[in-house]
């Protein structure tokens, strides 16, 4: 009866740590799999590429405006 208690404690430990690790290991696999699926089939719209294009166009307009302004200034 007396020795039982510590033995029980060890049983709890093995079962508990086993479950925690198993849970997390399966979770890691699921996370990796999920990431692959998401990246393959549902890639995020590439927001990073569009703005620079818009910027370039904007820049061109700005440059044109500045050039025009300078030209105008020189003329006058």
């Amino acid at each position: 009866m007396e020795t039982n208690l510590i033995l029980e404690g060890f049983k709890f430990m093995v079962l508990g740590m086993g479950t925690v690790f198993m849970f997390l290991i399966v979770l890691i696999f699921m996370m990796n799999m999920m990431s692959k699926i998401v990246h393959k089939y549902f890639p995020e719209p590439q927001v990073d590429i569009n703005p620079p294009v818009a910027n370039k166009q904007d820049n061109k307009k700005v440059i044109a405006a500045i050039t025009a302004a300078i030209a105008h200034h020189r003329q006058s």
């Binding site: 404690g9 709890f12 430990m13 508990g16």
Partner: peptide, 10 residues
């Protein structure tokens, strides 16, 4: 958690 559990029963 589980190490302390053993400690407490000990």
């Amino acid at each position: 958690i589980f190490g302390t559990l053993v400690g407490a029963v000990a």
